[in-house]
Write a protein that binds this DNA or RNA. Structure first.
Length: 407
RNA sequence: GCCUGGGUGGGGUAAUGGUUAUCCUAAGGGAUUGUGGUUCCCUCGAUCUGGGUUCGAUUCCCGGUCCAGGCCCCA
C-alpha cells in the first residue's frame, strides 16, 4: 500500500469542517481590520529564501530543479514571498499595505507534536507604516485572531532596542551569541559569556533586564532611549484596547531582520512546540530589490492552534436531510431533493438502490430529518417530514418543509 | 542529524516458535417491498517492510520504513 509521505496528514471531513470554521473566523477578523487576503506561489526561486538566511537552510527545504534548469523551492514560510510580492506588485498601492494570508508551507524537518512537513500558516503583514499605531495594530490583530480561534494563550512582547542598548559596546559577534542564548532562555549561558569576554559589569543589568516585567523597570536598567516615547505609546495603545500582555525583554527572535518590537504567543498543552505565533517589526523589502520599507507582521502556526483546540466538539447546526423514497416515489423524490438544495438545505438521496427500510436505516445514522416520499405522497402532492432525533413526523407541503428547515 | 518507545482487519484489541490468528466496533447485506436508532443472522477485512536464525517466524535477532514523543533546529 502506498502511504502518505512522512510528516503529512490526510484530513477527514470532520476535521476539515473544524479547520474551515476556525479559518473563516480568522479571515473574518482580519478583514474587519482591513487586512485583505492574498496568495503567492507554492514554489519560488530558491534564492528568495537563501538571500537572507544563508545556504544552510537549503537542507531544510524542498528544493528542486525544473525542466528549464531553474532552482526552485517549495515555500518554507510566507513572509519572504509576501514581501517579494509587495516589491513586485505593490509599488502603486496605497500605503500602508495590509495583507493577510492562509497557506501551506513545507519544511524538511523531523516531525513532532504540532510540527509537520506540510503545515499551514495564517499570517498578516502591515507594510509601509512606521508608527506606534502600526506596531500595536499588528499585535492586536494577532491577539484577536487567537482569541477568536478560542484557545488559551499568553502574549509576550519585547523590543530589540532594550537589549541592543544594553549591549551596545559589545562586538557584533558577541551580541549575536548573547541574543541566541537569550532566545533559548539560557540566561545563565548569556551571563557566563559576558564574563568570558570581560564585560562582567553587564551581568547584573542583563539579569535585571531579562527579569523586567514593566516598562519602568526596563528603562531603569537601560535609561531613556530615543525610541522610549514610541514604545510607551505602543503599550499605551494596547492598554486602551485592553490587550493582556507580558513584557519580556529577553525575547530576541532568531532573526537579523527584525528591527523593533517583537512578540510571541504560547499555548498551553502543546509539549515542546508550544509557540503558536511569532512576529515583529522588520525590514526586508530592500533585500528583494525594493525600497527600504518598514513593516510589521506575524505568522500563526495554524496546525498548532488546531492541536491546542483539542477535541472541542463540532456539530454543524445546519440540518441534514435525507430523502427516503419508495420506487413509486423516486421520480418525485428527485425533484423534491433539488428543490430543497435550491433553498440551501443540505439534502442527500440514496445512491445505492437501497430498499425503503435500508434507506431509513441510513438516514437514521447520518441525517437529522427524513423527507419520505412514496405512493401516498405522490398522490396527495405533499411529503412526510420525519424528525429522526425526536421520532415525530408530519405531512407537509415542500414549501413548508423549506420554511421549517431553512436557517 | 541524534535519542526513546511503538507498528496485528477502516478504528480499538487478544494470543502464539506449529491446525483455520481472538474479540469489540465500524462498513455492506438480510430478517423487514411504507418507518430507522434495539435485536438476531450473514458477509467483508489484519500480523508495516526486507533480510537472518529455524524443519517452521506474526512471535526471536538485524536493517529499513512509518507513527508518537524528545534533542538539535525552528526562516
Amino acid at each position: 500500500m502506498i502511504q502518505k509521505p512522512r510528516g503529512t496528514r490526510d484530513m477527514l471531513p470532520d476535521e476539515m469542517e473544524k479547520r474551515r470554521e476556525i479559518e473563516a473566523r480568522m479571515r473574518g477578523r482580519a478583514r474587519l481590520r482591513g487586512f485583505r487576503e492574498i496568495s503567492t506561489p507554492v514554489f519560488e526561486e530558491l534564492e528568495l529564501f537563501t538571500i537572507r538566511s544563508g545556504e544552510g537552510i537549503i537542507n531544510e527545504m524542498y528544493v528542486f530543479e525544473d525542466k528549464g534548469g531553474r532552482s526552485l523551492s517549495l515555500r518554507p514560510e510566507l513572509t519572504a514571498p509576501v514581501l517579494r510580492m509587495f516589491v513586485e506588485e505593490g509599488r502603486s498601492l496605497n500605503k500602508p499595505v495590509k495583507w493577510c494570508y492562509f497557506a501551506d508551507c513545507f519544511r524538511y524537518e523531523r516531525p513532532q507534536k504540532g510540527r509537520y512537513r506540510q503545515f499551514w500558516q495564517f499570517g498578516a503583514e502591515l507594510i509601509g507604516a512606521d508608527s506606534a499605531m502600526a506596531d500595536a495594530e499588528v499585535i492586536i490583530l494577532g491577539y484577536d485572531l487567537l482569541k477568536t480561534a478560542g484557545i488559551r494563550f499568553v502574549l509576550k512582547i519585547g523590543h530589540l532596542s532594550f537589549m541592543r542598548t544594553l549591549l551596545s559596546n559589545l562586538a557584533e559577534e558577541d551580541k549575536k551569541k548573547i541574543r541566541a542564548f537569550l532566545d533559548k532562555r539560557e540566561e545563565d549561558a548569556a551571563v557566563s559569556h559576558l564574563k568570558v569576554i570581560g564585560h562582567e559589569e553587564l551581568c547584573e543589568p542583563l539579569i535585571r533586564l531579562c527579569g523586567a516585567r514593566t516598562l519602568e523597570e526596563v528603562f531603569l536598567v537601560i535609561g531613556e532611549i530615543p525610541e522610549s516615547q514610541r514604545i510607551r505609546e505602543m503599550f499605551h495603545i494596547l492598554d486602551v484596547n485592553q490587550i493582556p500582555y507580558e513584557i519580556n525583554p529577553a525575547i530576541a527572535r532568531g532573526l537579523d531582520y527584525y528591527t523593533g518590537v517583537v512578540f510571541e504567543c504560547f499555548a498551553e498543552g502543546l509539549g515542546a512546540e508550544n509557540q503558536i505565533l511569532g512576529g515583529g517589526a522588520y525590514r526586508l523589502a530592500h533585500l528583494f530589490g525594493g525600497e527600504d520599507t518598514p513593516s510589521a507582521g506575524f505568522a500563526i502556526g495554524f496546525d498548532r492552534v488546531m492541536v491546542a483546540l483539542g477535541d472541542s466538539v463540532w456539530s454543524p447546526d445546519t440540518p441534514q436531510v435525507m430523502v427516503v423514497a419508495t420506487s413509486e416515489g423516486r421520480d418525485r423524490a428527485l425533484v423534491v431533493t433539488e428543490e430543497l438544495r435550491k433553498n440551501g438545505i443540505i439534502t442527500e438521496i440514496d445512491l445505492m438502490e437501497r430498499s425503503f427500510s435500508a434507506q431509513m436505516k441510513t438516514a437514521g445514522k447520518s441525517a437529522d430529518y427524513a423527507v419520505i416520499i412514496g405512493k401516498e405522497e405522490v398522490t396527495s402532492g405533499d411529503v412526510t417530514l420525519k424528525n429522526l432525533k425526536a421520532g415525530t413526523q408530519e405531512r407537509l407541503s415542500v414549501d413548508d418543509v423549506v420554511r421549517k428547515l431553512s436557517p
